[in-house]
Structures are given as structure tokens and as C-alpha cells.
Amino acid sequence: MSKEIIKIEDLTREFTMGAETVRALRGVSFTVKEGEFVTIMGSSGSGKSTLLNILGCLDNPTSGTYKIDGVEMKDLSKNQLATIRNEKIGFIFQSYNLLARTSALENVELPLFYNSKVSSEVRRESALKALKMVGLEERMDHTPSQLSGGQQQRVAIARSLVNNPVMILADEATGNLDTRTAYEIMSIFQELNEQGITIVFVTHEPDIATFSSRTIVLKDGNIIRDQKNDKVQSAAYELAKLPKQDH
């Protein structure tokens, strides 16, 4: 279990707006091995989302290299990138990005629509399974406007799981959840991680970071700390410790 799944070197990302240039990433390098659970922390505006978007093949770096399994992403065509996003990556957006007026189930099914190897029965089954994992199978017919913020976030999480990705990139996936639900979600992620799925998880909350095996801290587009976590907490265990709620 030591294959380098993600390798970035000297990654920069600049946004030009008129005469002004915002340097969101100023030369970031690290590698992630297969099966790692990495959290990325840092204050607002430090470049976490920008970094994650590049890792998710949604955005292109201004300079630097990005390799997945040793393959340079710059060399791939748009269609090849789309296939990677479709089959290898599960991405959870900070702002959910669910299709409006579309049921939770259909939202979760969406990635599989673009995979012609998946039949409609398998698509539905997988989507139901993913919804079950986040505890929303009873809400499968609800549209985003009929769901709470936390529920929408969980639909987005289910959508990222549906294609059995090799890596999950989550941008504040627990940002809108109460502690209990957040821990539930984290235990799901830990379970997936045990099955060998690589996870990169952006968060603000230090206690969430204790569930991961490594923490990278960003500040103003630079890495200021990259630390292994020797004492990985079990989310399932912490969940059991929480006082029972009255429901």
C-alpha cells in the first residue's frame, strides 16, 4: 500500500481579474499514497477549495504538475479527464451543487448516467445503496428544495460514492452537519478508507481532522504544515461515546 496515487509538484494557481492577480496557490507540493486519509485545513481564503478543484480535475493549475497514478493530467484530453472524474473520483462540493427540481435519487444517479457500462437497474441499485449509507433512503423522492441543508449535503455525499471511486475529494462535507451526523458521515468515510479508498478531506474543524491519518495546513496558498497523525481516532467509537439523543 505505498503506490503514489496523487503527486503534485510546485502547483500554482492564479486568478486574473482585470489588472489584479489573485495568487490562490503559490507552489504547493505533496504526494498522497493510495489508502491515505488526508485532511486539508486552513483559514478561509487560504486556497483549500482551489487546490481540491485541481485535484478533482475540475480546474487547471497555472503552473506545476499533477499526476494521478503516475499519469500527468496536463497531457490528457478533456474527454479523458471527464472519464477520470466519472470513474475514479468522487467529488463533494462545498456548495453541494445538486440539480434543482430533481429527486434525491436522480441526483445521486447522475454520474452513472454518463457511464454507458452501467445499466439502469444497476444505476438505481447503486444510487439507493449510496443513499442508504448516508441515511436518506426515505427521502429519495424529495427534491433539494424539500431537504434541509444537512440533508442536501448528504445527498451530495451519496452522489460522490455512487460510482465506487478510488478517491473521494470532499470540500467541507460536514460543514453543515451537527456533531452527531458529522461523526456518522466520518465513520462512513473511515469505513470506505479501510476498504482502500483514498480520501482528501477539506475541513475547518480540528476534531474532524483527528479522524484522518494526515493533516496538511494551508496559509495564503502555501503549505505551512504537513503532519502524520499517529493517533487516528475512530469515528464509530466517538459516535458511541456521544450522549444518546432523544429520538
Binding site: K78, N79, N86, L99, N115
Partner: peptide
């Protein structure tokens, strides 16, 4: 979004 989850152009 469709492109993000793997839809090609």
C-alpha cells in the same frame, strides 16, 4: 455539474 460528474462535452 454534469461535466464535473463525468459528462463529456
Amino acid at each position: 455539474l454534469r461535466m464535473a460528474v463525468g459528462g463529456k462535452g
